[in-house]
Amino acid sequence: MIRARLVLLAFLFFTFSGAMVMAAEEAAEAEAEYSRGSRMCLACHGEGRKQDAHEILLSRMAVTADSRTPMSDENHGCESCHGPSKAHTKRASDGSRPAPAITFGPDEPAELKNGQCLACHDNGSRFHWMGSMHDIQQTACVDCHDLHVENDPVLAVESQPEVCYTCHAEQRAQFMRQSRHPVQAASEATSHIGLMTCTDCHKPHGSAGEASLVQNTINETCYECHAEKRGPFVFEHQPVREDCSTCHQSHGSNYAPLLNGRGPWLCQQCHNAWNHPSMAYSGTGIPPQGASPQVLASQCLNCHNQVHGSNHPSGPGLTR
């Protein structure tokens, strides 16, 4: 019995002491890999240097009083994000300088880079990040965000669209069409800076609904600013209730107001009722050959102007 207790005691002792040694070694190993902090980094990456990063001190990331930031005393400064990089502070025997543990360069996988960011930012608007469209497309946080500046361009209303246009070339062109939402186009032309931004409708970190929209559905997102279209009306128009994009292009269109096509032909893609909805309208309906109310002015809406729904008890034809 005593022998058994001694064996158990010895086992516990060795186990415990072994664990302590291993922990101390790991700690020493980990500590050894970090450099002496941000001041050392900025000695080479300060203002005027080729790869300067000093402006990070102007950003929220550098506020030491916030214990969550990389620069707080509880963290490792630049290496909180770039990983333990003591080796980077010295030259190797061949004269080269080893890269930091994580450079956030284009040759590193998005998952690795994003892992660093999500270690702290895995909440709030990033709740839907995992599995979102940008995540699936392997977009890295740093593809959109610039952390080493005072004001991240993608968070500034005046510069956000330009960041999005970097990848979204189709939308960039659509915002130069004649009928469009007032998002600043990709040019120096004055006018729409800050009136609307992409994030008025989209959540780039993902959302519960489709197309990373701010609300659950396309229609609910549109109703945010177009609540007058929400109804419900006594006489509804079926596709309107279901999906605004059945008839509209949200970014920009050749046909006002943001329509997928020109009336009456757009309407006739669904409506082929007897009499005027089924008629062939062409150049015979425009001056000087003719003056068809289905082709001129607002086309079908010249009469069916309540196309989003009518609340008039005499409005089944969506005219009133």
């Binding site: 279209k229 929400r230 309540q306 609340n311 008039h312």
Partner: peptide, 11 residues
Amino acid sequence: GQMALEPENSY
């Protein structure tokens, strides 16, 4: 003639 304008609504 009289037409209905957009009705007040809530969500």
